[in-house]
Amino acid sequence: MSARLQTWLWIAQRGSAMVLAVCVSVHLVTMVIAVRGGLSAAEILARTQGQLAWLIFYSVFVVTVTVHAVVGLRAVLGETLGWRGWLRDLCLGAFALLLIIVGARAVLGVFGAGQ
C-alpha cells in the first residue's frame, strides 16, 4: 500500500472520529431520553420506521463506524501483533464488508424496510 493511500486512511480515520463524536452523542442522548421516558423497543421502532432522517443518520453512523474501526484496527494489529502487509489489509477489507452488512441490516430494521 502506498504512503499516499496510508495518509488518506489516516485522514479518513480522523474525519470519521469527528463525525462519530456527533453521532454517538445524538444516539446516546436519544436512547437515554427514550428509555427514561418509558418507551419500549417496539414503541421506539414505531417512531423510527419510515423516518428518512433516522435512515440517513444511522447510515452515516454505520459507514463512519466501519471506516474508523477498520483503520484503527489496522494500526492496532500492526503495532501490537506486528501483523502488517497485504494479508492483514485483505482481512480488514473483509471485516469492513462484514461491518457494513451487519450495520445495514440494523439500519434497515430501524427504518422498517425489512418489514
Binding site: S2, A3, R4, Q6, T7, A75, G78
Partner: peptide, 12 residues
C-alpha cells in the same frame, strides 16, 4: 512531507 507520510511517518 512526502518522506514523512505513511505508516512509518508522522501520522504514526
Amino acid at each position: 512531507l512526502r518522506a514523512v507520510s505513511g505508516d512509518a511517518g508522522c501520522q504514526a
